[in-house]
Nucleic acid binder design. Structure first.
Lengths: 212, 212
DNA sequence: GTATAGTACGACCGGTCGTGCTATTCTTTG
DNA sequence: CAAAGAATAGCACGACCGGTCGTACTATAC
């Protein structure tokens, strides 16, 4: 059976995901992947039918460890706004916490595959969409619980959230600016400020006035 | 002299920039570039000393046509806020207007080269920084002219502007969502709303009240 | 005890990569 | 018209690409 094959295959995929995060999808070659896994190219190839299959498996595994390190721990936070905040906090720089050496393969793929066609693009697109849907779902929950204003444009909120993530990624990993975290936090707070119910704003203002 | 060489060289670079925008830096190969330019690989190679030189020249040309299509036309707008708005408007989707078939090579490169080292990364980093500096300069001018609030965190403003651009790029080119422009405009207006002087806000509110 | 299926290997396929070196063609100039 | 020089092509190289082949070893099934 494939019982004995699984450890090897997952070892390949683990090594490969690391390579993916540092070198991007185009940086994945059977040769380098085999070398880093410590096996022959053909031996590695036998576990997948094609290079495309390798790429798809790597993306799938990426989604899985992202869910593990971003979504799962956020579920311990209370529903609504606290969970949304935790989700966003875990999102920023999740790859390092997941043990990946490089950046976010999904973000990189978005800019790498925007003019290509094929199954790899399709899979990445689906991953991106379901991630955005998950974000939207938790925003909606925060609205339902009265944590965010009832007339909030949820799609717009998520859209801007993605912008903060991308800018954070660019500044953290490319520019290597240590202030990336701070910038993202400020932007997130401002975005949240627009999304809070009106009475919550008044409360905050009142609290601020009391401090002064 | 190189007088006769320049047309050929710039023809190569023009073709190459198009290839760059669709395939990214790693998609640039001497073979395909030579094929598309209609000349031999070695003949093309003679114009540059190395592939790296090709990449650097392509990035340089990218910066040049970006300045042509984004910055230059914005300079016709009045100084301060109007110019900043024009700058942002021209920034979004500038590659199409510049005749490029693909996305923004700079944005793509930021996510492609974040874990590499070398001159290409250095050049891209410098391009990114000077672009951000140019944005900051025009924001500062808007502050000086009283169009934006005096205590505005300019770096933060530019940082969030970059986020909007990246999210717009991702949604326009990867997700291929036609609402990308609308989302970016809303986000920009909201960012601007936080940056306006307090009296300007009151004026806007009063105007709004008058309409109702 | 033997047949079978899974796993891995090394050798090798046609092609493309970047990059040299040499010849040829074209343009300019004397 | 000839000499000079620049521009391009031709060709070969070693490395690597994705992928296939035949072949061993191993563990289970019959």
């Amino acid at each position: 059976m494939t019982k004995a094959a699984l450890p090897t295959r997952s070892r390949i995929i683990e090594t490969g995901t690391n390579l993916l995060s540092t070198s991007g999808l185009s940086g994945i070659t059977l040769g380098t992947l085999a070398e880093r896994t410590g096996m022959s190219k053909s031996g590695l190839f036998a576990h997948f039918g094609s290079k495309e299959e390798v790429q798809l498996s790597l993306l799938e595994h990426t989604a899985q460890i992202a869910a593990e390190h971003v979504v799962a721990p956020a579920m311990r936070a209370a529903e609504g706004l606290p969970r949304l905040k935790a989700l966003f906090r875990n999102w920023l720089g999740w790859t390092a916490r997941a043990g990946l050496a490089g950046g976010c393969p999904i973000a990189a793929g978005i800019f790498e595959l925007d003019d290509t066609e094929g199954p790899v693009r399709e899979q990445l697109l689906q991953m991106e969409k379901s991630w955005r849907a998950l974000l939207a779902q938790h925003v909606a929950q925060a609205v339902d619980l009265g944590h965010l204003r009832r007339d909030l444009d949820i799609e717009q909120f998520v859209w801007e959230l993605c912008g903060i993530y991308l800018s954070h990624h660019a500044f953290l990993r490319f520019v290597r600016d240590p202030r990336a975290d701070k910038r993202a936090r400020i932007a997130f707070d401002a975005l949240l400020g627009r999304a809070l119910p009106k009475d919550a704003k008044k409360k905050k203002k009142a609290a601020l006035r009391r401090i002064r």
